[in-house]
Design a protein around this nucleic acid. Sequence first.
DNA 1: ACACAATCAACAAGCTTTGTTGACTACCTC
DNA 2: GAGGTAGTCAACAAAGCTTGTTGATTGTGT
Lengths: 141, 141
Amino acid sequence: MRTPDDLTALFRANQLKVTPQRLAVFEALHGDDTHPTAEVVHARVRERMPTVSLRTVYQALNDLVDLGEVRAVSVDNGAVRFDPNNSGHDHFVCRDCGRVSDVTASRPRLVAATGGEVLDEGYTVDTSEIIFRGRCAACNA
Amino acid sequence: MRTPDDLTALFRANQLKVTPQRLAVFEALHGDDTHPTAEVVHARVRERMPTVSLRTVYQALNDLVDLGEVRAVSVDNGAVRFDPNNSGHDHFVCRDCGRVSDVTASRPRLVAATGGEVLDEGYTVDTSEIIFRGRCAACNA
DNA sequence: ACACAATCAACAAGCTTTGTTGACTACCTC
DNA sequence: GAGGTAGTCAACAAAGCTTGTTGATTGTGT
Ligand SMILES: [Mn+2]
Ligand SMILES: [Mn+2]
Ligand SMILES: [Zn+2]
Ligand SMILES: [Zn+2]
Protein backbone atom coordinates (compact mmCIF):
# COMPACT_ATOMS: atom_id res chain seq x y z
CA MET A 1 0.00 0.00 0.00
CA ARG A 2 1.28 3.45 -0.84
CA THR A 3 1.52 6.34 1.54
CA PRO A 4 -1.63 8.20 2.57
CA ASP A 5 -0.52 11.06 0.34
CA ASP A 6 -0.20 8.83 -2.69
CA LEU A 7 -3.50 7.20 -1.91
CA THR A 8 -5.09 10.62 -1.85
CA ALA A 9 -3.96 11.19 -5.41
CA LEU A 10 -4.99 7.69 -6.43
CA PHE A 11 -8.47 8.05 -5.00
CA ARG A 12 -8.98 11.37 -6.75
CA ALA A 13 -7.78 9.90 -10.01
CA ASN A 14 -10.49 7.29 -9.61
CA GLN A 15 -13.27 9.76 -8.84
CA LEU A 16 -13.29 8.77 -5.20
CA LYS A 17 -13.40 11.61 -2.73
CA VAL A 18 -10.81 11.81 -0.02
CA THR A 19 -12.74 12.30 3.17
CA PRO A 20 -11.31 12.55 6.67
CA GLN A 21 -12.76 9.13 7.36
CA ARG A 22 -10.97 7.55 4.45
CA LEU A 23 -7.77 9.33 5.36
CA ALA A 24 -8.08 7.94 8.86
CA VAL A 25 -8.38 4.43 7.42
CA PHE A 26 -5.32 5.04 5.27
CA GLU A 27 -3.36 6.09 8.32
CA ALA A 28 -4.67 3.30 10.50
CA LEU A 29 -3.49 0.74 7.97
CA HIS A 30 -0.25 2.39 6.93
CA GLY A 31 2.76 0.30 7.89
CA ASP A 32 0.61 -2.18 9.77
CA ASP A 33 1.68 -5.80 9.61
CA THR A 34 -0.81 -7.32 12.04
CA HIS A 35 -3.48 -8.14 9.43
CA PRO A 36 -6.35 -6.49 11.27
CA THR A 37 -10.00 -7.20 10.68
CA ALA A 38 -12.44 -4.46 9.77
CA GLU A 39 -13.53 -4.31 13.38
CA VAL A 40 -9.96 -3.71 14.52
CA VAL A 41 -9.44 -0.99 11.95
CA HIS A 42 -12.73 0.53 13.03
CA ALA A 43 -11.67 0.62 16.68
CA ARG A 44 -8.36 2.16 15.71
CA VAL A 45 -10.00 4.86 13.62
CA ARG A 46 -12.53 5.65 16.29
CA GLU A 47 -9.81 6.56 18.74
CA ARG A 48 -9.35 9.73 16.74
CA MET A 49 -12.76 10.07 15.12
CA PRO A 50 -15.34 8.60 17.48
CA THR A 51 -18.28 8.93 15.11
CA VAL A 52 -16.98 6.90 12.18
CA SER A 53 -19.27 4.01 11.43
CA LEU A 54 -18.20 0.45 10.75
CA ARG A 55 -20.03 0.70 7.45
CA THR A 56 -17.79 3.54 6.32
CA VAL A 57 -14.68 1.63 7.32
CA TYR A 58 -15.81 -1.35 5.26
CA GLN A 59 -16.34 0.95 2.31
CA ALA A 60 -12.88 2.46 2.54
CA LEU A 61 -11.29 -0.96 2.93
CA ASN A 62 -13.20 -2.35 -0.03
CA ASP A 63 -12.16 0.62 -2.12
CA LEU A 64 -8.54 -0.06 -1.23
CA VAL A 65 -8.93 -3.70 -2.13
CA ASP A 66 -10.60 -2.81 -5.42
CA LEU A 67 -7.72 -0.51 -6.27
CA GLY A 68 -5.25 -3.28 -5.55
CA GLU A 69 -3.66 -1.40 -2.68
CA VAL A 70 -4.70 -3.81 0.04
CA ARG A 71 -5.00 -7.56 0.06
CA ALA A 72 -7.98 -9.29 1.62
CA VAL A 73 -6.67 -12.34 3.41
CA SER A 74 -8.98 -15.21 4.37
CA VAL A 75 -7.11 -17.35 6.79
CA ASP A 76 -10.00 -19.12 8.43
CA ASN A 77 -13.65 -18.58 7.92
CA GLY A 78 -14.02 -15.87 10.47
CA ALA A 79 -13.60 -12.23 9.56
CA VAL A 80 -11.51 -11.19 6.58
CA ARG A 81 -8.16 -9.64 7.40
CA PHE A 82 -6.75 -6.67 5.53
CA ASP A 83 -3.12 -6.52 4.50
CA PRO A 84 -1.55 -3.26 3.30
CA ASN A 85 1.61 -5.16 2.32
CA ASN A 86 1.15 -5.98 -1.32
CA SER A 87 4.67 -7.12 -1.98
CA GLY A 88 4.77 -10.83 -2.69
CA HIS A 89 4.76 -12.68 0.57
CA ASP A 90 2.95 -15.46 2.37
CA HIS A 91 1.53 -16.05 5.80
CA PHE A 92 2.04 -18.07 8.91
CA VAL A 93 -0.96 -18.60 11.17
CA CYS A 94 -0.49 -19.63 14.77
CA ARG A 95 -2.92 -22.32 15.85
CA ASP A 96 -2.90 -21.03 19.41
CA CYS A 97 -3.04 -17.26 19.38
CA GLY A 98 -4.33 -16.86 15.83
CA ARG A 99 -1.71 -14.31 14.98
CA VAL A 100 -0.94 -13.95 11.28
CA SER A 101 2.71 -13.25 10.45
CA ASP A 102 4.35 -12.34 7.19
CA VAL A 103 6.78 -14.89 5.85
CA THR A 104 8.81 -15.40 2.73
CA ALA A 105 8.62 -18.76 1.03
CA SER A 106 9.98 -20.33 -2.09
CA ARG A 107 7.50 -20.07 -4.93
CA PRO A 108 5.72 -23.38 -5.33
CA ARG A 109 5.55 -24.90 -8.76
CA LEU A 110 2.28 -26.33 -9.89
CA VAL A 111 3.23 -29.78 -11.09
CA ALA A 112 0.05 -31.42 -12.29
CA ALA A 113 -3.63 -31.83 -11.81
CA THR A 114 -4.29 -34.70 -9.46
CA GLY A 115 -7.64 -35.84 -10.69
CA GLY A 116 -6.42 -37.92 -13.59
CA GLU A 117 -6.59 -35.25 -16.23
CA VAL A 118 -3.25 -33.72 -16.95
CA LEU A 119 -2.88 -30.02 -16.34
CA ASP A 120 -2.99 -28.78 -19.88
CA GLU A 121 -2.21 -25.48 -21.52
CA GLY A 122 -5.73 -24.27 -21.04
CA TYR A 123 -5.10 -23.40 -17.42
CA THR A 124 -3.90 -19.95 -16.48
CA VAL A 125 -2.36 -19.45 -13.06
CA ASP A 126 -2.39 -15.84 -11.90
CA THR A 127 -1.41 -16.04 -8.26
CA SER A 128 -0.51 -18.48 -5.53
CA GLU A 129 -0.96 -18.01 -1.82
CA ILE A 130 0.60 -20.16 0.84
CA ILE A 131 -0.61 -20.49 4.39
CA PHE A 132 1.70 -22.14 6.89
CA ARG A 133 0.12 -23.30 10.10
CA GLY A 134 1.76 -24.14 13.35
CA ARG A 135 2.76 -22.51 16.58
CA CYS A 136 4.55 -19.22 16.88
CA ALA A 137 7.59 -18.64 19.06
CA ALA A 138 5.61 -16.85 21.74
CA CYS A 139 3.09 -19.68 22.06
CA ASN A 140 5.79 -22.34 22.03
CA ALA A 141 7.64 -20.81 24.93
CA MET B 1 -11.19 -40.57 3.54
CA ARG B 2 -11.64 -44.31 4.01
CA THR B 3 -14.45 -46.36 2.59
CA PRO B 4 -17.89 -46.15 4.16
CA ASP B 5 -17.26 -49.59 5.67
CA ASP B 6 -14.05 -48.48 7.32
CA LEU B 7 -15.70 -45.31 8.53
CA THR B 8 -18.41 -47.41 10.11
CA ALA B 9 -15.81 -49.18 12.20
CA LEU B 10 -14.02 -45.93 12.95
CA PHE B 11 -17.17 -44.22 14.13
CA ARG B 12 -18.06 -47.13 16.39
CA ALA B 13 -14.57 -47.17 17.82
CA ASN B 14 -15.13 -43.53 18.74
CA GLN B 15 -18.50 -44.11 20.39
CA LEU B 16 -20.29 -42.50 17.48
CA LYS B 17 -23.32 -44.35 16.21
CA VAL B 18 -23.57 -45.23 12.57
CA THR B 19 -26.95 -44.01 11.48
CA PRO B 20 -28.43 -44.20 7.98
CA GLN B 21 -28.01 -40.44 7.76
CA ARG B 22 -24.32 -40.61 8.53
CA LEU B 23 -23.88 -43.50 6.14
CA ALA B 24 -25.56 -41.44 3.45
CA VAL B 25 -23.07 -38.62 4.07
CA PHE B 26 -20.20 -41.10 3.88
CA GLU B 27 -21.46 -42.31 0.54
CA ALA B 28 -22.22 -38.87 -0.80
CA LEU B 29 -18.66 -37.82 -0.11
CA HIS B 30 -16.87 -41.03 -1.06
CA GLY B 31 -14.66 -40.56 -4.09
CA ASP B 32 -15.89 -37.03 -4.62
CA ASP B 33 -13.32 -34.52 -5.84
CA THR B 34 -15.57 -31.51 -6.39
CA HIS B 35 -15.10 -30.03 -2.90
CA PRO B 36 -18.79 -29.61 -2.14
CA THR B 37 -20.24 -27.33 0.48
CA ALA B 38 -22.49 -28.63 3.23
CA GLU B 39 -25.49 -27.47 1.22
CA VAL B 40 -24.38 -29.49 -1.76
CA VAL B 41 -23.83 -32.60 0.33
CA HIS B 42 -27.21 -32.04 1.88
CA ALA B 43 -28.92 -31.87 -1.51
CA ARG B 44 -27.11 -35.01 -2.60
CA VAL B 45 -28.14 -36.90 0.51
CA ARG B 46 -31.73 -35.77 0.25
CA GLU B 47 -32.08 -37.36 -3.16
CA ARG B 48 -32.13 -40.68 -1.35
CA MET B 49 -33.34 -39.62 2.09
CA PRO B 50 -35.61 -36.63 1.69
CA THR B 51 -36.05 -35.96 5.39
CA VAL B 52 -32.42 -35.47 6.39
CA SER B 53 -31.87 -32.06 7.87
CA LEU B 54 -29.01 -29.72 7.04
CA ARG B 55 -28.17 -29.71 10.72
CA THR B 56 -27.56 -33.45 10.69
CA VAL B 57 -25.36 -33.18 7.60
CA TYR B 58 -23.26 -30.53 9.31
CA GLN B 59 -22.89 -32.82 12.30
CA ALA B 60 -21.70 -35.75 10.22
CA LEU B 61 -19.29 -33.57 8.28
CA ASN B 62 -17.87 -32.08 11.45
CA ASP B 63 -17.43 -35.53 12.92
CA LEU B 64 -15.49 -36.56 9.83
CA VAL B 65 -13.33 -33.47 10.08
CA ASP B 66 -12.70 -34.08 13.78
CA LEU B 67 -11.61 -37.63 13.02
CA GLY B 68 -9.21 -36.35 10.40
CA GLU B 69 -10.98 -38.14 7.57
CA VAL B 70 -12.11 -35.02 5.76
CA ARG B 71 -10.41 -31.69 5.22
CA ALA B 72 -12.31 -28.45 5.59
CA VAL B 73 -11.12 -26.14 2.84
CA SER B 74 -11.68 -22.38 3.03
CA VAL B 75 -11.00 -21.02 -0.39
CA ASP B 76 -12.88 -17.75 -0.12
CA ASN B 77 -14.99 -16.49 2.69
CA GLY B 78 -18.17 -18.09 1.54
CA ALA B 79 -19.16 -21.54 2.66
CA VAL B 80 -16.57 -24.06 3.76
CA ARG B 81 -15.87 -26.88 1.32
CA PHE B 82 -15.34 -30.46 2.38
CA ASP B 83 -12.61 -32.59 0.88
CA PRO B 84 -12.55 -36.36 1.41
CA ASN B 85 -9.12 -36.53 -0.21
CA ASN B 86 -6.69 -36.33 2.67
CA SER B 87 -3.61 -37.23 0.72
CA GLY B 88 -1.25 -34.29 0.50
CA HIS B 89 -2.39 -32.07 -2.31
CA ASP B 90 -3.21 -28.47 -3.06
CA HIS B 91 -5.91 -26.58 -4.85
CA PHE B 92 -6.56 -24.51 -7.91
CA VAL B 93 -9.50 -22.11 -7.82
CA CYS B 94 -10.98 -20.76 -11.03
CA ARG B 95 -11.77 -17.06 -10.82
CA ASP B 96 -14.62 -17.44 -13.27
CA CYS B 97 -16.59 -20.56 -12.41
CA GLY B 98 -15.32 -20.96 -8.87
CA ARG B 99 -14.49 -24.60 -9.37
CA VAL B 100 -11.88 -26.02 -7.01
CA SER B 101 -9.54 -28.58 -8.56
CA ASP B 102 -6.96 -30.82 -6.96
CA VAL B 103 -3.39 -30.15 -7.97
CA THR B 104 0.03 -31.33 -6.99
CA ALA B 105 2.65 -28.72 -6.23
CA SER B 106 6.21 -28.68 -5.06
CA ARG B 107 6.40 -28.24 -1.32
CA PRO B 108 7.24 -24.64 -0.53
CA ARG B 109 10.04 -23.93 1.87
CA LEU B 110 9.50 -21.31 4.50
CA VAL B 111 12.52 -19.09 4.13
CA ALA B 112 12.20 -16.37 6.71
CA ALA B 113 9.89 -14.08 8.57
CA THR B 114 9.44 -10.87 6.66
CA GLY B 115 8.87 -8.48 9.50
CA GLY B 116 12.46 -7.93 10.45
CA GLU B 117 12.67 -10.61 13.11
CA VAL B 118 14.36 -13.72 11.83
CA LEU B 119 12.37 -16.91 11.89
CA ASP B 120 13.90 -18.62 14.83
CA GLU B 121 13.70 -22.13 16.23
CA GLY B 122 10.69 -21.27 18.33
CA TYR B 123 8.35 -21.60 15.38
CA THR B 124 6.75 -24.91 14.60
CA VAL B 125 5.28 -25.43 11.17
CA ASP B 126 2.72 -28.23 11.02
CA THR B 127 1.13 -27.84 7.62
CA SER B 128 1.17 -25.71 4.52
CA GLU B 129 -1.66 -25.17 2.11
CA ILE B 130 -1.30 -23.64 -1.31
CA ILE B 131 -4.09 -22.05 -3.29
CA PHE B 132 -3.45 -21.29 -6.95
CA ARG B 133 -5.84 -18.89 -8.60
CA GLY B 134 -6.48 -18.36 -12.25
CA ARG B 135 -8.72 -19.59 -14.98
CA CYS B 136 -9.52 -23.19 -15.70
CA ALA B 137 -9.35 -24.76 -19.16
CA ALA B 138 -13.11 -24.73 -19.58
CA CYS B 139 -13.40 -21.02 -18.79
CA ASN B 140 -10.42 -20.15 -20.97
CA ALA B 141 -11.92 -21.79 -24.03
C1' DA C 1 -21.06 28.20 -5.34
C1' DC C 2 -22.83 23.98 -6.86
C1' DA C 3 -23.51 19.20 -7.87
C1' DC C 4 -23.22 15.14 -6.04
C1' DA C 5 -20.45 11.80 -3.48
C1' DA C 6 -19.90 10.39 1.05
C1' DT C 7 -21.29 9.83 5.74
C1' DC C 8 -24.24 9.01 9.68
C1' DA C 9 -27.57 6.63 12.44
C1' DA C 10 -30.29 3.11 12.85
C1' DC C 11 -31.74 -0.87 11.26
C1' DA C 12 -32.62 -4.76 8.29
C1' DA C 13 -31.22 -8.55 5.84
C1' DG C 14 -28.36 -12.13 3.61
C1' DC C 15 -25.34 -15.95 4.38
C1' DT C 16 -23.14 -19.60 6.90
C1' DT C 17 -22.95 -22.17 10.89
C1' DT C 18 -24.30 -23.54 15.44
C1' DG C 19 -27.62 -23.74 19.37
C1' DT C 20 -32.04 -25.23 21.36
C1' DT C 21 -36.07 -27.76 22.68
C1' DG C 22 -39.14 -31.53 23.05
C1' DA C 23 -40.71 -35.55 20.96
C1' DC C 24 -39.53 -39.51 18.69
C1' DT C 25 -36.42 -43.21 16.62
C1' DA C 26 -33.15 -46.57 16.38
C1' DC C 27 -28.32 -48.06 17.22
C1' DC C 28 -25.23 -50.51 20.13
C1' DT C 29 -24.31 -53.26 23.95
C1' DC C 30 -25.40 -56.49 27.30
C1' DG D 1 -34.48 -59.18 23.11
C1' DA D 2 -34.58 -54.98 25.98
C1' DG D 3 -32.94 -50.82 27.58
C1' DG D 4 -30.10 -46.82 27.85
C1' DT D 5 -28.69 -43.24 25.30
C1' DA D 6 -27.11 -41.01 21.24
C1' DG D 7 -28.97 -39.35 17.22
C1' DT D 8 -32.50 -37.15 14.46
C1' DC D 9 -36.26 -34.18 13.27
C1' DA D 10 -38.83 -29.91 12.90
C1' DA D 11 -38.89 -25.53 13.64
C1' DC D 12 -36.82 -21.86 14.97
C1' DA D 13 -33.47 -18.74 17.02
C1' DA D 14 -29.19 -16.72 17.19
C1' DA D 15 -24.32 -15.58 16.52
C1' DG D 16 -20.95 -13.49 13.49
C1' DC D 17 -19.68 -11.11 9.39
C1' DT D 18 -20.81 -8.24 5.62
C1' DT D 19 -23.75 -5.57 2.75
C1' DG D 20 -28.10 -2.99 1.81
C1' DT D 21 -31.25 0.86 2.80
C1' DT D 22 -33.18 5.27 3.84
C1' DG D 23 -33.47 10.00 4.65
C1' DA D 24 -31.11 13.72 6.42
C1' DT D 25 -26.77 16.11 6.57
C1' DT D 26 -22.03 17.23 5.49
C1' DG D 27 -18.24 18.47 2.77
C1' DT D 28 -15.18 17.48 -1.48
C1' DG D 29 -13.67 18.55 -5.84
C1' DT D 30 -13.98 21.66 -9.78
MN1 LIG E 1 0.84 -10.07 5.11
MN1 LIG F 1 -8.88 -31.40 -2.75
ZN1 LIG G 1 0.93 -17.88 18.84
ZN1 LIG H 1 -13.58 -22.11 -14.63
